[in-house]
């Protein structure tokens, strides 16, 4: 549509072009405004007030909700738990996903598609269903895991896998890993399979086999995919809600609370909408920070 090579009408065309661009961008911007910018503005605005979902009056408290949040033990527990899930998930999901992908890519000859399907399967189950499945498996009274642990002569945790505050967050982390490692594996496997096989042969002749080939050839070849995987995992780790809501509800006694569930608790159970908004803004800032980081790294790569 651009006819910029015609010098006489150039300025007129430029204006028309700008108008066209604007017209084409408007629907997207409008939708973004309605579904993103305006809600975000409302949340930021709301975070400056003290009010509940059914309150008639909003009391302006300035940054009071933020001060309250930073002085709130549970807020820090929730943030810490988010970080545990983010870092733990990167190690477990991306780490194991890479290992499984490497094994499937090079080691396993028989039933590769079947294995891939089995490992990927948890990904297509909703988090809520996954949570319910694991509630049954981890049940301290009738759950099969306890039976297995007892069967090999060990003692399962007395307070239950999800009831013991010292381990419950790690158990939830494990469930998340069970659900998403397959997805990471498939993502990374796609990357691995795009690496030409003769590169590995060249590397073998150069003296890089096994772990050295993995380190010097495989990992650098899938660097960009790993960055994407880590980013997906990080964002997912900060956004996590459903899995925890279903399995522990943030308990026992807030020990698995994350920002997502704590926002829900404050907003809908306790009715501190302003406080919940303030935590949401903190979460938003973290997300924006991560987005910025992603843009930066992807431009570098």
């Amino acid at each position: 549509m651009s006819q910029t090579s015609r010098p006489r009408s150039r300025s007129g065309n430029l204006a028309a072009e700008k108008l066209t661009y604007a017209a084409m961008l408007t629907p997207a911007l409008l939708l973004l405004a309605v579904f993103v910018f305006i809600p975000v503005a409302l949340v930021i605005y709301g975070s400056l007030f003290d009010f509940g979902l059914t309150s008639r009056d909003w009391t302006f408290v300035g940054l009071g909700n933020y001060v309250e949040a930073f002085g709130d033990d549970v807020f820090w527990i929730a943030l810490r738990n988010n970080l545990i899930i983010v870092i733990g998930s990167i190690v477990l999901q991306v780490g194991f996903g890479t290992l499984l992908a490497a094994v499937l890519d090079r080691g396993v000859r028989l039933g590769r598609t079947l294995m891939r399907t089995i490992i990927f399967a948890p990904m297509v189950i909703s988090s809520v269903a996954v949570g319910l499945i694991w509630l049954i498996i981890l049940d301290p009274n009738v759950g099969p895991l306890n039976a297995v642990v007892k069967g090999v002569g060990l003692t399962p945790p007395k307070l239950g896998w999800l009831g013991d505050p010292s381990i419950s967050i790690w158990v939830v982390l494990g469930i998340a890993a069970w659900q998403y490692t397959g997805f990471m594996m498939v993502l990374i496997l796609a990357g691995l399979q795009a690496v030409p096989k003769d590169i590995y042969q060249a590397a073998a002749l150069d003296g890089a086999t096994g772990l050295r080939a993995f380190w010097y050839i495989t990992l650098p070849s899938i660097r960009n995919i790993l960055i994407v995987a880590i980013l997906i995992t990080t964002v997912g780790g900060f956004k996590v809600f459903d899995l925890i809501f279903v399995t522990t509800g943030g308990g026992p006694a807030n020990s698995t609370q994350v920002l997502g569930t704590y926002i829900y608790l404050q907003a809908f159970n306790i009715g501190e909408m302003g406080f919940a908004n303030a935590i949401s803004v903190v979460l938003l800032l973290i997300a924006v920070g991560l987005g910025w980081l992603q843009l930066k790294t992807s431009r570098k790569a």
Partner: peptide
């Protein structure tokens, strides 16, 4: 009570 009441659902105890 049983060992892990905080990890046991109300439904399960009713079934018991």
């Amino acid at each position: 009570f049983q060992d892990a009441p905080n990890a046991t659902s109300p439904e399960l105890t009713r079934t018991m």
